[in-house]
Each structure stands twice: as structure tokens, then as C-alpha cells.
């Protein structure tokens, strides 16, 4: 039981990392990774949203859509659930930490369009996870996302001061770096 949960968690964080192996959530990965501090803020907000959205969408599916036979509405329902969770997070962050709210600014609503969030919600249904598994899967996905986002941000801060040839400056070299990191993550294949 406990071993299964550990495997699920490690699988979501490392082996099937949402960004570098499944290529979900690339927009915030490229967009919010130019500064370490913002990346840390973004990753904590995403972790919160993803875990919560994963749980909420599971509950909506199991307790609302399935009893009513409306499974075919799940994508649009999940989008709505995610938007609500993001809005809720935005309100909480604005009240509790105005500074973080200022730093995250436009990125908070961006979580709504983070395909990793919708991806987790849909994968939970596809893999027939139960309540605890959905929560863990959501948290694992978020932890993996946060880890690579923060590491990538630290690396991009270093690349920003490197003598990169002009045609490759900025996003191009960032993409190449993301590709190299994805290569490295293939080393985890087969662990779980």
C-alpha cells in the first residue's frame, strides 16, 4: 500500500516528469523561468493549485458526472473546476501576501491555461485513480514541475550572463537547454 503510493509519487516526479518527459506545462516552464525568485513563487502557487484541482476534479467526476451519466462533459467541467480553483488561489494570495501577488502578477491566471493541470485531472480518470491516489498524483506532478522549473530558472540566470551567440540568445538557447534536460531525464526510464 505504502510502497504503491511511493511508486506513484516518484513516478510522477521523476520518471514521468510532466514537463521534461510528458511535455505538459511548457508555457510557464519557458515563461516564468528567467528569475529564480519568481520561479519559486510560481512553483509554490502551481503546487497548491494542481493538488487542489486534482482532488476537486476527481470529486466532481466521481460524485457528479458519473452518477448523472455525463462523463462526456468531463473536459469542459474540469476546465471550469480549474478556473475556480485558480481564482480562489488568486484571492488567497492577494490577501495573505501582497508582495507575492505583485511578483506573480499575470502568471497566476496563467495557471488556468497550464496544460499540466488539466492533464493531471484527465490522467487521474484514465488511470482510474482513487481519491488518495489522485491527490498524490496531483502533488507528485506539481512537485516534479516545481523541481524542474526552479532548477531551470537557476540555470537560465547563469545562461543569461553567458556569451551566447546573438541568434541563439533568449528563448532559443532556453529551448536547447530544456531539450538537454529532457535527455538527462530519460536516464530515469524504467525506475518505476
Amino acid at each position: 500500500m505504502l510502497a504503491d503510493y511511493t511508486i506513484l509519487l516518484l513516478g510522477a516526479i521523476l520518471v514521468n516528469n510532466f514537463v521534461l518527459v510528458q511535455f505538459l506545462g511548457l508555457c510557464p516552464f519557458m515563461g516564468v523561468s528567467s528569475k529564480l525568485e519568481t520561479a519559486i513563487g510560481m512553483s509554490s502557487a502551481t503546487t497548491f493549485v494542481l493538488t487542489l484541482a486534482s482532488i476537486c476534479s476527481w470529486m466532481t467526476y466521481e460524485w457528479l458526472l458519473q452518477p448523472l451519466g455525463l462523463e462526456y462533459l468531463r473536459t469542459i467541467t474540469f476546465i471550469l473546476v480549474i478556473a475556480v480553483v485558480v481564482q480562489f488561489t488568486e484571492m488567497v494570495v492577494r490577501k495573505t501576501s501582497p508582495l507575492l501577488y505583485k511578483v506573480l502578477g499575470v502568471f497566476l491566471p496563467l495557471i488556468t491555461t497550464n496544460c499540466a493541470v488539466l492533464g493531471v485531472a484527465l490522467l487521474n480518470i484514465n488511470k482510474e485513480h482513487n481519491f488518495v491516489e489522485s491527490a498524490l498524483y496531483g502533488f507528485g506532478a506539481a512537485a516534479g514541475f516545481s523541481m524542474v522549473l526552479v532548477l531551470f530558472a537557476a540555470m537560465r540566470e547563469r545562461i543569461a550572463v553567458a556569451d551566447v551567440p546573438v541568434p541563439f540568445k533568449g528563448a532559443a538557447v532556453g529551448m536547447v537547454t530544456a531539450g538537454l534536460m529532457s535527455l538527462a531525464f530519460m536516464g530515469f526510464a524504467g525506475l518505476v
Binding site: 529564480l36 526552479v150 532548477l151 531551470f152 537557476a154 540555470m155 540566470e157 547563469r158 538537454l180 534536460m181 535527455l183 538527462a184 531525464f185 530519460m186 536516464g187 530515469f188 526510464a189 524504467g190 525506475l191
Partner: peptide, 28 residues
């Protein structure tokens, strides 16, 4: 970890690349 449980028999290259990736964060 990769040698014992992963798909690849020798893991030095993967491990080095993964930690290269983490090195700026460690430095910070």
C-alpha cells in the same frame, strides 16, 4: 539508483547530466 533499478546499466553520464542541471541551484 539508475544502475540498480533503472534501464541503463551504467549511469555515470545520466547522473552527471542531471546534476549539471542542478549545479546552478546548488551554487545559489
Amino acid at each position: 539508483i539508475i544502475r540498480a533499478w533503472g534501464n541503463y546499466p551504467d549511469a555515470v553520464a545520466f547522473a552527471v547530466l542531471l546534476m549539471n542541471f542542478a549545479a546552478p541551484f546548488i551554487d545559489h
